[in-house]
Amino acid sequence: MLEGKVKWFNSEKGFGFIEVEGQDDVFVHFSAIQGEGFKTLEEGQAVSAEIVEGNRGPQAANVTKEA
C-alpha cells in the first residue's frame, strides 16, 4: 500500500490522478475506489492505494479515503 493525495479527479468522466511523493502520478479510475454509493475523490484528499500494472501503465487499485 502507498499513501498519496488526489491531484485531480473528474467525477463526470470517472477518473483522475493521485500524487505520490517520489514517484510519477498514478492513474485512478472510479471502479478502484472502495466504498458504497457514488464513487468520487476530492482534489487534495489523502488516500491509500495499491499500484497494479494496467493496460496503459501503473494504476491505482483498492483506493481508500483516509480520515
Rank of each mutant, 00 (worst) to 15 (best):
Q34M: 13
V26H: 01
G57R: 08
V47A: 03
L41N: 01
D25Q: 05
I33C: 08
V47C: 04
F38L: 07
K65E: 05
E53D: 10
A67Q: 13
T64P: 02
G35L: 06
Q23W: 14
G4E: 00
G44Q: 04
E19N: 07
L2W: 10
K39D: 04
E53C: 15
G35D: 09
H29Q: 02
D25S: 06
R56E: 05
T64Q: 13
G54N: 06
G35V: 08
F15I: 08
E21G: 08
E3M: 14
G35S: 09
K13Q: 08
A49Q: 03
Q45A: 09
F9D: 03
I33H: 02
V52Q: 08
F9E: 03
F30I: 09
E36C: 13
I18W: 00
V52H: 09
A67V: 13
F15P: 01
K7N: 04
D25I: 07
V20P: 00
K65M: 11
A61H: 11
N10R: 02
V26I: 12
G37H: 05
G37Q: 04
D25E: 04
E19D: 06
S11Q: 13
Q23V: 09
K5H: 11
Q45G: 06
G54S: 10
V26F: 05
Q23N: 09
A60Q: 02
S48D: 04
M1P: 11
A32D: 13
K65L: 12
G35Q: 09
Q59I: 10
E66S: 15
F15C: 05
Q45W: 10
A46H: 14
F30H: 10
K5F: 11
V20W: 07
W8Y: 07
I18Q: 00
L2V: 15
S48I: 13
K13C: 10
I33Q: 03
G54K: 06
E12D: 11
I18L: 09
T40M: 08
N55L: 14
F9G: 02
F15K: 00
R56P: 06
I51D: 00
A32F: 03
A49W: 12
F38P: 08
F30D: 07
G54Q: 05
I51Q: 04
S48L: 14
Q59G: 04
D25G: 04
Q59L: 08
G57N: 04
E53I: 15
S11H: 13
S48H: 14
S48Y: 14
T64G: 06
E3F: 14
K65C: 10
A61L: 11
V6M: 03
G37R: 01
K5I: 13
N55S: 14
G4Y: 04
G35K: 03
F17H: 01
S48K: 15
V47I: 08
E50D: 10
E12V: 13
E53S: 12
G37L: 04
E53K: 13
V52T: 09
D24E: 13
M1G: 09
L2D: 03
S31H: 08
A67N: 12
G35Y: 07
G54D: 04
V52N: 05
G57I: 03
A46V: 14
A60T: 03
A49H: 09
V52M: 09
A32M: 06
T64I: 15
D24C: 14
F9K: 02
R56Q: 09
V63A: 03
L2F: 14
D25H: 06
A61F: 10
S31K: 05
E66Q: 15
N55W: 14
F15T: 00
S48T: 14
E42V: 14
E19A: 14
K7C: 08
V47N: 02
E12K: 14
G35M: 13
Q23A: 11
Q23E: 09
V47K: 02
G37C: 10
N55I: 14
W8F: 07
A67G: 12
Q34N: 14
Q34T: 12
E21A: 12
V63C: 04
I51R: 08
V63D: 02
E43Y: 13
A60M: 05
R56H: 10
H29C: 09
E36V: 11
N10M: 03
H29E: 06
Q23L: 13
N10Y: 04
E50G: 08
I18R: 00
E66D: 12
Q23T: 08
A32K: 06
K5E: 03
Q59R: 10
I18E: 00
V6Y: 00
D25F: 07
F15S: 03
S31F: 06
R56K: 11
A67P: 13
T64K: 15
E66N: 14
K5P: 00
S31L: 08
K5M: 08
D25Y: 07
E50T: 14
A32C: 10
V28M: 04
S11I: 10
N62F: 11
Q34I: 15
G57K: 05
T40H: 08
N55G: 11
N10V: 04
A60V: 06
D25A: 06
Q59N: 05
G16I: 04
M1N: 09
I33S: 03
Q34G: 08
V20C: 07
N62A: 09
V52G: 06
M1F: 13
L2I: 15
I18V: 05
A61D: 07
E36G: 10
G14W: 03
G4R: 01
F15H: 05
R56A: 08
V6Q: 00
A46Y: 14
W8G: 01
V26E: 00
P58H: 08
G44Y: 04
K65S: 09
F30R: 09
K7A: 04
A60N: 02
G57A: 05
G22C: 08
G4I: 03
G35A: 09
G4L: 05
Q23S: 11
V26G: 00
A32N: 09
V47Y: 00
E3T: 14
F17G: 01
E19I: 11
L2A: 09
A46E: 09
V20T: 05
V52L: 08
E42N: 10
K13A: 08
G54L: 07
Q59K: 09
L41F: 05
N10H: 08
G4H: 02
N55V: 14
N10W: 08
G16M: 04
H29A: 00
A32S: 10
I51C: 08
E21H: 11
G44W: 04
I18T: 00
E66L: 15
N62C: 13
L2N: 05
E3C: 15
K5D: 01
Q45C: 10
N62H: 10
E19G: 08
A61E: 08
F30Y: 12
L41M: 05
V63T: 02
V63R: 01
V63H: 02
E36D: 12
E42W: 13
V47G: 03
W8P: 00
E42G: 08
S31M: 06
S11P: 13
Q59D: 02
K13R: 10
H29L: 04
K7M: 01
V52K: 09
T64L: 13
V63N: 01
F9V: 04
E19W: 10
E36Y: 09
E19M: 13
E50F: 11
R56F: 12
P58I: 10
E36P: 11
F30A: 09
V47P: 01
I51Y: 07
F38C: 11
V63M: 02
E12W: 11
G16Q: 00
E43N: 12
A46G: 09
